[in-house]
Amino acid sequence: MDSQSVNAVGSTVRKTEAEGDALVVMELIQRLKVRDVMTRNLVTLSRSATLREAQLLMRENHISGIPIAENGRLYGIVSIDDIIQALDGGYISEKCVSRMSTHLIVLEEDMPVSFALGFFENYKYGRFPVLSKDRALVGIVSQRDISRVMLYELTQEINRLERQHTRAPEDRVGEGAQLYMLREFPVVKYDFENAGKAANEIKRLLREQGVAARLTRRIAVAAYELEINICVHSNGGTLSFVISNGVAEVVARDTGPGIENVEWACRDGTSTANEWIRSLGFGAGMGLANTKRVADKFDISSTLGKGTTVYAAFRLDGAEK
């Protein structure tokens, strides 16, 4: 082996390790939104306030920047730098509006935290105001806010990984034995932001295990349809994914309201979805029919007022449906 190939191998290994390390953090900064980390208890001043008032307020609250806002509308920000310059320049009694920064870089509350981190990297500000979809000031984010929440979430994640790790030996049954896997994902009613995540994860797991592409697609389609069904039609529930004895099973359980006519619900094109759900790309009434079509075995049971369980099974031995 010449030195060049040694280097190549070495760098590949390093890259993989780095990716492995970062994955938990990467997922976290995508999953967490700005609203999860921002400070909601805002200390603001009105447009009539002076720089002196801003200075006192900063000292009282141990903060280094104050948004100038009225009735939720953001006009500008006074930073500790502005105060220092005002003291230096002898205009501390002037109004904030005459000296505040008005070219503001703002975050939106439903942006992932990764965006906020990017902002801190790209702009040298200590804090960013956070606006809602309708442009109202709803919070403020400093790097400290992000660190605090990240530390908490990472601790949770590490605890979870540790628990998983201690259970790991039971996950696989013996050397060369068949694959065994069990995952359960909660699905929340109308949570369109996260709907589909479980199915995406199931697909990733199957690909990782080297399951054939077409079979992977069939299982993933069933998982996705059932996950969306729970999200759109039920009060919430769980999506379970089990592999044992050469069979993959996707089971969707919800807590109600139950289906009145199961046979009708399984037919193509029948749906109780409203226009709003349709505008999101769902509700064509094909979910159960699609699931039935891709599965080797399909079963559904439902009790009005209690809930619905849908079962879809797939043989992993490669026998095509």
Binding site: F192, E193, A195, G196, K197, A199, N200, K203, A213, T216, R217, A220, V221, A223, Y224, L280, G281, F282
Partner: peptide, 16 residues
């Protein structure tokens, strides 16, 4: 698609 939502991407991943 004209569906500008996360679901377009999630669906795309499902079908490969």
């Amino acid at each position: 698609t004209s569906l500008a939502s996360d679901q377009s991407i999630r669906t795309a991943q499902i079908v490969g």
